[in-house]
Every structure is written in structure tokens, then in C-alpha cells.
């Protein structure tokens, strides 16, 4: 595969691009501001994860995890449908679409940096006590707060 590898890129530069892409997607799609969280929160039970694989200069899995209620709120702002009227299927679709938009936006930045990137279709996972185990392959983790009650964990994993 031609192009530079992701590991050639400075980590600060990479997380700068991640933050820029994520806050841009959230602001555009929900009208809300995402800020880097100061605390290392975790997502408890009843969580949902939107995920997408990326191949090329780097083979990565990008995941976006939050609680079901938080995801409902995000999808409500995206669609204008009040949270109570959203189905689980809407929430899954919304999280998958959010990760799709985020990775599409990030791809544009990475391609400009000289990386060669191909993206796949997004998917989502939910349930009680679902644990995603990535062993020691996690490349980076970023946490964002969107409102006081809504925190999202973005994780990039080497695959």
C-alpha cells in the first residue's frame, strides 16, 4: 500500500485532527458543542457503540461509545424527533451514521496528510454488560462531553 503510515504522524497532530473532526460533526449535526472531557469517565451498562473499520496506510477500528440515553439525546438533536419517540433501531442507525460521518470527515484530513485510506460500512453494537476487549491494541482514546449528561468515548484501535 502506498502513502505514509499512521504511525509516522505525530500523535498530537493526529489527536488534533480527531478533535477537529469530532467537534465539527457534532456541532453540524446536533447544534451542540463537544468539548474534550477533563475526567476519565467510562460508559456503564446499557451502552451503544457505533463502529467502522478503516484500511490502507493504517488498519484501524474506530468506535464511538455512549450510554443508550445519551445516544437517544444525540439522535434526537440530529433528527428533530423527541427522544421518547425514537426506537432502538433509530438509535443504532444514528450512532452508525455518526461514526460514518466522523470517519468520512477524518478521512479527508488524513488523505490531505498523505495517507491512503479506504473506509468500510459502519455498524453498531448494544446491550447490557457488553464489553469490547481490544487487549493492548488501543491506539488512542478521547473522551468528550456534549452536555452535562452526555459523554462519548472515541477509541481508535489497530487491527
Amino acid at each position: 500500500m502506498s502513502g505514509k503510515g499512521l504511525l509516522d504522524m505525530d500523535m498530537d497532530r493526529f489527536t488534533g485532527l480527531l478533535n477537529g473532526a469530532f467537534t465539527d460533526v457534532i456541532r453540524t449535526m446536533t447544534g451542540l458543542d463537544a468539548e474534550e472531557a477533563s475526567d476519565c469517565f467510562t460508559v456503564e451498562e446499557d451502552s451503544i457503540t457505533g463502529a467502522m473499520a478503516v484500511f490502507g496506510s493504517a488498519d484501524m477500528m474506530v468506535t464511538l461509545s455512549t450510554g443508550i440515553d445519551a445516544a437517544k439525546l444525540i439522535v434526537a438533536y440530529m433528527t428533530g424527533v423527541i427522544a421518547a419517540d425514537l426506537t432502538l433501531s433509530d438509535i443504532h442507525d444514528g450512532m452508525a451514521e455518526l461514526v460514518n460521518m466522523f470517519v468520512g470527515r477524518l478521512k479527508a484530513d488524513l488523505v490531505r496528510e498523505g495517507l491512503d485510506i479506504t473506509i468500510t460500512s459502519p455498524f453498531s453494537i448494544s446491550g447490557n454488560d457488553v464489553e469490547l476487549v481490544f487487549k493492548d491494541r488501543t491506539y488512542c482514546i478521547c473522551r468528550y462531553s456534549i452536555t452535562d449528561d452526555v459523554g462519548v468515548i472515541l477509541r481508535i484501535v489497530n487491527i
Binding site: 439522535v75 440530529m78 433528527t79 428533530g80 424527533v81 433501531s89 433509530d90 442507525d93 444514528g94 452508525a96 451514521e97 460514518n100
Partner: peptide, 11 residues
Amino acid sequence: DSAITRKIIRS
């Protein structure tokens, strides 16, 4: 194929 995108477009 995204129901959410179709909802946004419908609006």
C-alpha cells in the same frame, strides 16, 4: 440506507 439520514432529509 440510513433511516436517520432519510429522517433528516425528510425534515
